[in-house]
Every structure is written in structure tokens, then in C-alpha cells.
Write a protein that binds this DNA or RNA. Structure first.
Length: 423
RNA sequence: GGAGGGGUUCCCGAGUGGUUAAAGGGAGCAGACUGUAAAUCUGCCGGCGAAGCCUUCGGAGGUUCGAAUCCUCCCCCCUCCA
């Protein structure tokens, strides 16, 4: 190879490396990554970049997108992504861990979840450079002998090093053998796929490392592992996840995505920019400075953030609309553009306010309705309801507001059926 | 196989016969404030048109005027010993 050619490669390597490194928590190891990149550029063979996904939760939220976006960057650099659905444990049905309800899934269910995944995931990934695979393809074929052979590669002490295992073990929480084997199974995925790179959240570090070791034991060049920081949820402390309910789904309505983003604590703004958008380092630094100095209202940055995120998943127009709506409802305390109409079944013109709230679904129980009224959180046509015993005339359309952001028009089913109640 | 500890409301976690719909924290919700569905403060936080009543403390029985608390059996988990 000429000197010029090798120089060219090394520039390319540096360029790719910088893109890949942005926002990562850890790259093990950077040197290996560079050498893999160099080889790939040299030979024209794309790197196989793998990430595994749980088959049970096909609701993709911003937390997932942190690594997905990183995968996309690999694709844009010409590499191949393997989106691996860990259906095997789903087929077995792991009875342990936090989620004791996790039950055995049928192949049909797994297939269905995979379809849902596809629909959502290609909002981020490039379908042409993505291979979707299932680890049951090789794990199911393994004999007990194979499994034992695999187990011999890892010691109990090594497995117990894993932080969450150790914590659970120490605090007397159950760990099933299946969970113990889990890292090995995941690691073996890398062997089966001959992965060059594996991505995951920082909580996956251990599993990813096992993959490296197994590959080495099976005579392969170990994969590079890249961990991404865990995105905090809307509560600002817990990791974003479906089960804690602090997530922002990429399939949600634009105004929900916008509003939920606005509800993150100010401290989380920087991380969100870093992990969820393509802002350059100078831009990120500027935001960091602003937030630290406190001269710029953090809200402004948060609005920009919310706008960007909605733009990515719903388009610019939807973002404009969501921003406008937010401004209107929470800035100027006006009514949202569209308020659904609920026709409540009643033969009378007048109905007890609590009945209206529960009957329309605004409140889940009459206790909640009473509480809300008592606390001054219920308005009808702009007037605060001050008595739990109030009757409401619903022969005409009434606008009910509960708290800051629950709006509903209610009317008796007797009237308005023909008119449709347009506002 | 033996010995001991434990399963509490959305989550964590107190409670060992009545004063317990069950401390405390978290989450959630509301109000106030505000530049934000940030932060902070205050309040609410099983169900019932709410006086009172009903359901809840792993499951099923039992003791008692009265049980999350005591007894029996069962299920599940943990620790130590082998």
C-alpha cells in the first residue's frame, strides 16, 4: 500500500471514530475499534454491529433510541447492523427477576412483537442495512452438552461480579439459574453472529464483556463493545423504562412527546441533547454553559429540545404544532386546539358532578373526583367547582378542565347527537 | 436432608391481637408559586352519593367479641449447615 493510501485510510478511520465515540460511556477498546475500522475501510467489508433486544416490550421509547441512533450512525458510515431479538428466553419464559409475571411466549407472539419492533425501529434505522435476527435460531438447536460446554467458560465468581447480581445476592433477592446463564447466552449470540461490535447501555457492560471472552475462547477476534449512558426518564432519576412509567414513546402523539419532554427536570436537559440529538460539540458546550450560568432560562433550551425530538419522530410541522399548543395551554393558559367531546348517557338534563367526572373517564373513581374537586382542580366552563355536591346541567355542551392538562367537552347523550357538537 | 428468616397497599418498607385503610419514603395527582407538564412549598393518595359501609396485608381453613398480627395446612423466596 502506498503511503498516500494508508494516510487516506487513517483519516477516514479518525473521522468514523470521532462520530462513533460521541456520547458513548465507554468503548472497549478504542484501539481495537480503530483497527477494525481500518480493516473494514481497507477491505470494503462493513463491520457487523449487533445489539440485542428483549422480545417482550415492543414499545420503543427515547431510552432505546440512544443506542439505536448510535447504530444508525454506524449504518451511515456504511456498516451493517444486526438487530437481534432475544426471543429464546421469551420462548422459555423466565420466571425470575423483578418481573415475576413474565410468562412464556408463543412463537406467534414473538413474531408479532418482532413486527411491531420493525415498524418502530425503522423510524431510526436504515432498513437496507439492517438484519433482523432471532437468537432462538441457534440457541434452540444447542444440546445440553453444548450448554455445558458453554458454561465451562465462565466461573460463578465471575458471574457474581455483575453488579446487579451481587446486589440481589447480598440483599437476599432471588436469582434463577436461567438468569445466571443469561450472560452466557447473550455472549454466545456474538459468537454465532461473529459480531465485530456490540452496543448496549452501561448496564449491559458485563454481558457485552462475556461476549468478548467467549468469542476469544471460540477462536474469534473479540468484539468491540460500546456502552451508552442510560437515559434518565421524565422523573429525572430513574432510568427510562416502560415499567416505571417515566418514558417517552416515539410512537406517541407529538404533543405528548413535546409535553413530556418539557416535564423533564432542568438538570436532564444537557444529557437529552447529548444523547437524543445530533448537536455538535460546540453547540452542546454552549448549552452546558447557559445552563450553568443560569442567565438563559432553561425553559428555552428545553423547548428547543422538545421541538427537535418531535421533529425527528413526527416531522417539523408536527413539532411546530406541538410547540404552539404547549405555549397556548401552559404559557397562556388557554384552551387546546382540539378537545374531544364525550356524550354521557343520561335521561336527565342534570347530573351530579362526580358522576360526570367518573362517567366520562376523566376520573377513575369517585374518590378521585371528590379529591380533585376538594383541591380546586376541577373547572367547568372556566369556573372552579367548589362543591362536591354540585349538579351539572349537561343538556348543553360543557367544557370540563381537570388539573392543568385534562380537557373534555361533555354533553348529555340526549342532545348533540345530530349536531356532532362541533366547537 | 437439617436449622432459621421472610412474603404488607403502584414500588420500597414499618407494623406482631383492638387506637390500623395500615408509619415512613418514592412514584403519581392537585393547589400555590413560577420563565416550563423544571425546581420549591402545601395537600391528597383502596372502593362506595361517603353517615357509615365494603374490600385489602402470599393462598385456604381455624381460634377470638375482634386478626396483617395467634394456630393448622399449602405455595413461593432467602440464609446457614450437609
Amino acid at each position: 500500500m502506498t503511503e498516500i493510501a494508508s494516510k487516506k485510510i487513517s483519516t477516514q478511520v479518525d473521522r468514523q471514530f470521532e462520530i462513533i465515540r460521541r456520547g458513548t460511556a465507554e468503548v472497549i477498546s478504542e484501539e481495537e475499534l480503530k483497527s477494525k475500522l481500518a480493516k473494514s475501510i481497507e477491505t470494503g467489508r462493513p463491520l457487523k454491529v449487533k445489539e440485542g433486544f428483549d422480545p417482550t416490550a415492543p414499545d420503543i421509547h427515547l431510552g432505546h433510541t440512544v443506542t439505536l441512533r448510535k447504530l444508525r450512525q454506524f449504518q451511515d458510515l456504511g456498516h451493517e447492523v444486526i438487530f437481534l431479538i432475544g426471543d429464546f428466553t421469551g420462548l422459555i419464559g423466565d420466571p425470575s427477576g423483578r418481573d415475576t409475571q413474565r410468562k412464556r411466549m408463543t412463537p406467534e407472539e414473538v413474531q408479532q412483537n418482532a413486527e411491531t419492533y420493525k415498524k418502530q425501529v425503522f423510524k431510526i434505522l436504515d432498513p437496507d442495512r439492517t438484519t433482523i435476527d432471532f437468537n432462538s435460531r441457534w440457541l434452540k438447536e444447542m444440546t445440553f452438552e453444548d450448554v455445558l460446554g458453554l458454561c465451562a467458560h465462565c466461573t460463578v465468581a465471575r458471574i457474581l461480579e455483575r453488579d446487579d447480581f451481587l446486589n440481589r445476592y447480598r440483599s437476599g433477592k432471588p436469582i434463577s439459574m436461567l438468569e445466571f446463564l443469561y450472560p452466557l447466552a447473550q455472549g454466545y449470540d456474538s459468537v454465532a453472529l461473529e459480531a465485530d461490535v456490540e452496543l448496549g447501555g452501561t448496564d449491559q457492560k458485563f454481558n457485552l464483556l462475556v461476549g468478548r471472552e467467549l468469542q476469544r475462547d471460540y477462536g474469534q477476534e473479540p468484539q468491540v463493545i460500546i456502552t451508552m449512558p442510560l437515559l434518565v426518564g421524565t422523573d429525572g432519576t430513574e432510568k427510562m423504562s416502560k415499567s416505571t412509567g417515566n418514558y417517552i414513546g416515539i410512537n406517541e402523539a407529538p404533543k405528548e412527546i413535546y409535553g413530556k419532554t418539557m416535564s423533564i427536570p432542568d438538570e436532564a436537559i444537557y444529557d437529552y441533547f447529548l444523547l437524543l440529538t445530533d448537536l455538535s460539540h460546540p453547540q452542546l458546550d454552549e448549552i452546558k454553559r447557559d445552563l450553568q450560568k443560569g442567565e438563559v432560562n432553561p425553559m428555552e433550551h428545553k423547548k428547543a429540545l422538545a421541538h427537535k425530538i418531535v421533529t425527528i419522530y413526527c416531522g417539523r410541522e408536527a413539532a411546530e404544532q406541538a410547540a404552539g399548543e404547549f405555549e397556548k395551554v401552559f404559557g397562556r393558559k388557554e384552551l387546546p386546539d382540539e378537545i374531544p367531546l364525550f356524550k354521557i348517557q343520561s335521561e336527565r338534563d342534570s347530573l351530579w358532578i362526580v358522576r360526570v367526572l367518573t362517567g366520562s373517564g376523566l376520573c377513575s373513581s369517585s374518590g378521585e373526583a371528590r379529591r380533585l374537586i376538594a383541591q380546586g382542580g376541577v373547572y367547568v366552563d372556566g369556573e372552579r367547582i367548589d362543591s362536591v355536591d354540585s349538579e351539572l346541567d349537561i343538556s348543553r355542551e360543557r367544557l370540563i378542565k381537570v388539573g392543568k392538562r385534562r380537557f373534555l367537552k361533555v354533553v348529555s347523550d340526549k342532545v348533540g347527537t345530530a349536531s356532532g357538537g362541533k366547537a
